[in-house]
Write a protein that binds this DNA or RNA. Structure first.
Lengths: 340, 340
DNA sequence: CCCTTTGGTGTGACCTGTAACATTCTTTAT
DNA sequence: ATAAAGAATGTTACAGGTCACACCAAAGGG
């Protein structure tokens, strides 16, 4: 017994639609791709046939011929991309899907090989610890457009979107200096992260430049919410136990600040009466903390949106120049800082 | 001038590998698919050729013939899936990619149509507000395996993974009752969410059953972190302003509890001296709050892992019975509750 | 020693769209 | 009227894998 192809669950193809509408499959393809030279009446018939059969274009087949996957890949190198899943929906308006993967710096070339084989159209790179030469990165990229969503200071040939960490740290430290603080401690993120190390270095340099000895510091890790809270707490405990004096603490992120705040409380230190606290990010919880947290606001939403937007730009106009994009943070003064 | 196909950036195909290794393309395919009947020497030659040419199997072509995409789709209906992107990496060990999309209940059938056209192999459904008949859901599913990662009480034909909300609420309210509280307020999530409404209903019933009048309540929305904090705050303010008495508050999630805590503080109400607070989730920040939060722990990580695991199970063994899976929460007593 | 089995390999069709080119039928310019 | 241009549609050849089947040689059974 010979079964016709369209038995059961197999979905209709353009050939089926063509037969239904009494045209050639190519005409159906033209309708699908909104080719101008299709007679309105024909287009109408074909459209009707498509609806009748419940036709949906087979992406795999389209991928195979066009060499375009409509997929962009988010690659987190040496860490996790700490945002919420709905962010991946930003690609939807552009008819792209985003897939996510993590890898080590060593695996990155292989990652690009696989991306190329999957005909991934763009790579959204989150590699906050990766110091890599632009040319090396481009070499392994198989010409897939890349946008780095991090701080890649020296990069001239790769589009990236990042925050000015020096400026951010200036805002935080200046604020404390203006309030009269001279004994300023810091709880940093992992210094392997480029952003975190800039914040740390800038904090140090600003104080040293002014002849002030940098206060005690501890290294944490804000790469996940969990570790941020815990290492914020641990770091603060460590600083307190060091017995070195401090009247203010700079904390690398608002999540860490939650842990820091908790440690201070345990040791009976009041904020801001005994210790002023300034942090970075302006996360949603910052204004609900006790006291509401003074923080250097970074609009990550904007950063992510821009990074995606630039990526789509590079995909559709591969010839335009890469343009690094430095975002400027803002100080939000709340009640965790006070004049000494 | 005739250009050979393999100019520049076009990637090598199995035919290229075959030529390089001096075998047929089918043999290369067999090596790729670990077919047992390939002579070791041949396999070796082919593998070497693949490496030499930097071959990666073209996913689109594979998809087209096998009708398998190696893609699973996470669909959030009427809301956002509030977890972090790295969660999507749980699919990696299984050689799947996860894509994410959101839709309204009305769009869901169309979503499945598109999924079928993309040959999506499984759907991870997060639809905490969706009350839908199993059969209706199955009807629109094009036979794509589905796992619901939410509470779908009546479902017998769909695999789902959820927490026992009744039990969870019992834990919270019993705890307060045991401590002597009789004036118990509640800040709920949006009552359109099935989980939230169960928590609300159970809270009410438990009190009424015992002849206690339910305390004041306010409806919030914990579907995003942002809204959770804000509506937690707003809801608590509303309850306080109602002037109705309460000695304890049940809060729908730990995120909302942050807002609630902040509102209480503003009104000079101490926790737990004036008000006991019990919440749900045991989010990372719960133990760093002031005071550390008593909460009903739900292991979302486990829930997500199980849901993914069940989905892969259903994909590889479509014939096994759907099995609803009810997870049991645990009460974590910290310092936000106290005997009255 | 011949027949059957089976391990190892090759051949050609097929999956479902799209691109390039061919074909038909109008319409316009000369 | 006739060539040329152009609109609408059809034909055929891909894209890069996998599948079904054919084939051959070596091994095992009678």
């Amino acid at each position: 017994m010979t079964l016709s192809r369209n038995t059961k669950d197999s979905r209709p193809t353009i050939r089926d639609v063509a037969r239904e509408a009494g045209v050639s499959h190519q005409t159906v393809s033209r309708v699908l791709n909104e080719h101008p030279k299709v007679a309105p009446a024909t287009r109408e018939r074909v459209t009707r046939a498509m609806h009748k059969l419940g036709f949906e274009r087979n992406l795999a087949a389209q991928m195979l011929t066009t060499q375009r996957s409509q997929i962009i890949q988010v690659i987190a190198v040496d860490g996790k991309f700490p945002f919420e899943i709905p962010l991946l929906n930003s690609t939807q308006g552009e008819d792209y899907f985003a897939v996510y993967s993590e890898c080590t710096p060593k695996m990155l070339p292989r990652m690009f090989d696989m991306a190329a084989a999957r005909m991934v159209e763009g790579v959204f790179l989150y590699a906050p610890k990766l110091q890599i030469d632009d040319d090396d990165l481009l070499k392994m990229s198989h010409n897939i457009p890349i946008v780095r969503r991090d701080f890649a200071f020296a990069s001239k040939k790769i589009t990236w979107v990042g925050f000015d960490q020096v400026r951010a740290t200036h805002l935080a430290v200046h604020h404390l200096l203006d309030l009269g603080h001279r004994e300023i401690a810091m709880v940093t993120g992992t210094l392997k992260a480029i952003n975190a190390s800039w914040r740390y270095a800038t904090w140090r340099e600003m104080l040293i430049e002014r002849g002030i000895e940098p206060g005690p510091s501890a290294e944490g890790d804000y790469s996940t919410r969990q570790s941020a809270l815990q290492t914020g707490y641990d770091g603060m405990c460590q600083i307190i136990q060091s017995r070195r004096r401090f009247s203010a603490v700079v904390v690398a992120t608002d999540n860490m600040a939650l842990g820091v705040r908790s440690a201070l409380r345990e040791y009976g230190l009041r904020v801001p009466e005994d210790v002023s606290l300034v942090s970075f990010d302006d996360a949603p919880h910052a204004r609900f903390m006790d006291p509401p947290l003074t923080t250097v606001a970074m609009d990550f939403d904007l950063q992510n949106r821009l990074a995606f937007q630039f990526l789509f730009e590079r995909i559709s106009h591969p010839d335009i120049e890469p343009h690094p994009h430095m975002l400027l943070p803002d100080l939000v003064v709340r009640q965790s800082t006070r004049e000494i």
